[in-house]
């Protein structure tokens, strides 16, 4: 599904990612853990196509295609979803109308007919219920006046609406209490399937109790220093990043 090879990325001329290798198969959930500033969000943004991130070396193949060549909206249409660490508020743009525009653009790309208003609303109600996002919030301006938890639930609601093949979730757990975390995890787990893959970025092991990963990577200073199974996350929790890093030194 996703194959990242020797990816080097600079921001403002400063190297941030320094040779990332990562391969995710369909059906898998990978987790990336790492301290603040290690480059997790940078990786997420590069996958989604944000401007300002210069790829100086390496490649990213998504379903066999060169992902880095695609415009952000093309990536979305091809099934890539980024759940933002800090979802931006967009006053004046209604959540549901923008999502309808997004969904129908994606459907068009796939050669499907647009959803009509009634079917769209039905789908929206179902997905909002899944993440316990009040119906009222789906109609408000995008993230405008939303609490931190509501923003994160809105991200998962949108993901559920768009049904991506590859979901990259950037610290979707940060700022959530345990109940909200469970709700978000339920939304994510509901989307797991043999045709989908996920890259779950988190700072804490806690989320991985609810979204159990197949593979865990540790990203430090722009490089993946360890890769293991879900027990690696537990070890990190116990021993901290510095231990894991030094253990990785030959």
């Amino acid at each position: 599904m996703l194959k990242i090879e020797d990816l080097h990325v600079e921001v403002d001329g400063k190297p941030i990612l320094k040779g990332i290798n990562l391969e995710i198969e369909a059906g898998q959930v990978h987790a990336i853990m790492g301290p603040n500033g290690s480059g997790k969000s940078t990786l997420a943004y590069v996958l989604a196509g944000r401007e300002g991130y210069e790829v100086t070396k390496g490649s990213v193949l998504y379903k066999g295609q060169d992902l880095l060549e695609m415009a952000p909206e093309t990536r979305a249409a091809e099934g890539v979803f980024l759940g933002f660490q800090y979802p931006v508020a967009i006053p004046g743009v209604s959540n549901i109308y923008f999502l309808k525009a997004a969904l129908n653009a994606i459907r068009k790309h796939r050669g499907e007919d647009p959803l009509d208003a009634i079917d769209f609303m039905k789908l929206s109600k179902k997905k909002a219920a899944l993440v316990q996002l009040p119906d009222e919030l789906t109609k408000r301006s995008v993230n405008d006046g939303f609490s931190g938890g509501e923003k994160k639930r809105n991200e998962i609601y949108q993901m559920a609406m768009l049904e991506p093949s590859l979901a990259v979730l950037d610290e979707t757990d940060s700022g959530l209490d345990i109940d909200a975390l469970k709700v978000v995890a339920r939304g994510v787990n509901g989307l797991r399937g043999p045709d989908r893959a996920m890259l779950v970025i988190t700072h804490y092991q806690r989320l991985l109790d609810y979204i159990v990963p197949d593979v865990v990577h540790v990203l430090i200073n722009g490089q993946i220093v360890r890769t293991g199974d879900k027990d690696l996350a537990k070890q990190l929790e116990r021993e901290g990043y510095s231990e894991v890093r030094s253990a990785s030194q030959p």
Partner: peptide, 18 residues
Amino acid sequence: DQDQLFYLRARGVPEDFA
């Protein structure tokens, strides 16, 4: 706002439309 523009595009809204 470029962040807003990117958010909309990353969800699949074509640039012109966003």
